[in-house]
Design a protein around this nucleic acid. Structure first.
Ligand code: NAD
Ligand code: NAD
Lengths: 229, 229
DNA sequence: GAGGATTTGTGCTTTTTTGCACAAATGTGT
DNA sequence: ACACATTTGTGCAAAAAAGCACAAATCCTC
């Protein structure tokens, strides 16, 4: 950018980043974290693209939306780029997560150690089952285990207020999901990860991401079916 | 289709269905199943769209790719449409699933009852942990529980051959995922659902779908961060 | 059996996403 | 200091997806 005037527009996060790009940033971030762990200093778009399963052109365009953090002829500095992505995505702060529904899945999520290392802290568990309420559940993997009390659904609002949770996970049966979602929203949660196989309707301004494992298998089955021979 | 010649191309599944459409069919299918359970006979595109969180125009276009199964001025017959989608997606047959990695997540998946009702049968569990191999794990929810033996990783190929599994689930730590994937492919599996947070490279003709829970939280966090006020 | 009310199916437009190709920028070696 | 090899950043083209709007088909009523 020689002739163009000085003021760099790119800097502030005023710039709109496309949804497709946002959905790929976590993969770049993870790959960069691994590279950093392995002490690698630099990486080219070609290599990082191969590592994350995208084309190098797409990777470069994605990254260019965050700013111009590479060096032509050289590549990207692993640690620096990782930091820029984490900053852009808000991963340099901790996020508190409340899990509603402590069944098979909710428990697996709570036990999982991989969230903590990425800045997500499960701070509260909520369930409707009387036999579960009041019991303790181990959260996080070895090293950083915390025991969390399972709270009653009726305490949801208080728990959210106390823990300052900003992300909600719905891991209840499908029948209860909409009700739970409504209560989460009413309690101030505006970002929900939904595992129940139903569409949640939420007011404008609330984001829902749905993870539907059965659908994934069905999509695989669809393609598998077409692999005749 | 007035002037255009008669021969209806639509009928056989020769027609190419877009990936975006395929990814939405499971949601339509699920909604239709619920409606069928509730004895509802007919439904309009508008209603079904609301139920699944898409626009009615998109729903109609999606469905039109399967064939012309609605009636103008009336809507769609729930049971008939459900059957057409299930046929198109290969859900009128059973699919055998092998799960590799019987930890938090693998176990939750095995326990889950919702797969069986959709035609997916977990037929084999495989792990590398000596203390797990040989133990039994309950599969499926109440009513249709089956106890499955956890097999050694070294038996993977045999297990797949014996059980005729066609779908593979990778629920191992990230470090092992690529190795496991390679072995699944070598054993003839061509459809893989991957929960490990790494990109799996597989030969042409093999499909991988990745479910990355941490990424989902990160994407939520990204948007949450921008909800400044 | 004609007219009006619905609701599908689809041609066309707009937006989003992906892919290509190359100039611009950097490093290297002589 | 200059030619050359690399690799980024991006303008432009292509493809895919989403949205709009309306004619065509069906049902219902009188
Ligand atoms: N487990 C899996 O592998 C899997 C796979 C695909 C989808 N899912 C979906 O994820 C969700 C959870 O699955 P799961 O296997 O953990 O089910 P689960 O039955 O083991 O657990 C559900 C939990 O939610 C609690 N609950 C019920 N109603 C509630 C309410 N109103 N408020 C709070 N808690 C409530 C129950 O007490 C129970 O503890 C389901 O919607 C299921 O369809 C699970
Ligand atoms: N549990 C979660 O909620 C969660 C969330 C996000 C991502 N994940 C990812 O899902 C995967 C599984 O998570 P988890 O919590 O169940 O982990 P886990 O450690 O509880 O279970 C992993 C299992 O895989 C087995 N294993 C290890 N190497 C193996 C190999 N080579 N072959 C076969 N089995 C092997 C281990 O013995 C263990 O039983 C991980 O990649 C994790 O990052 C899990």
């Amino acid at each position: 950018m020689p002739s163009k005037a000085s003021s760099s527009i790119k800097d502030g996060h005023t710039h709109k980043i496309s949804e497709a790009t946002v959905s790929r940033l976590p993969a770049y971030y993870r790959a960069l974290s691994q590279l950093a762990d392995a002490q690698q200093i630099r990486i080219s778009s070609e290599e990082l693209a191969a590592l994350t399963g995208v084309s190098s052109a797409m990777l470069r365009k994605d990254l260019s939306h965050l700013g111009s953090y590479g060096t032509r002829g050289v590549g990207y500095e692993v640690e620096f780029l990782r930091y820029q992505i984490s900053r852009e995505m808000g991963l340099n702060q901790d996020w508190s997560v409340v899990i509603v529904g402590v069944g098979n899945l909710g428990r697996a999520l709570a036990h999982y150690g991989g969230f903590g290392s990425r800045g997500f802290r499960v701070v509260a568990l909520v369930d409707a089952d009387q036999t579960l309420i009041g019991t303790k559940v181990k959260c996080g993997a070895e090293g950083k285990t915390v025991e969390l009390l399972v709270h009653a659904l009726s305490d949801l609002e208080d728990v959210i207020k106390e823990t300052n949770a900003r992300l909600g996970v719905v891991a209840t049966p499908a029948e209860s999901a909409q009700v739970v979602s409504d209560r989460l929203v009413k309690a101030g949660i505006r970002s929900i990860l939904n595992f129940a196989p139903v569409h949640l309707s939420v007011p404008e301004g609330v984001d829902v991401r749905k993870v539907d494992l059965a659908s994934e298998l069905q999509i695989l089955a669809f393609h598998e079916q077409r692999k005749a021979i």
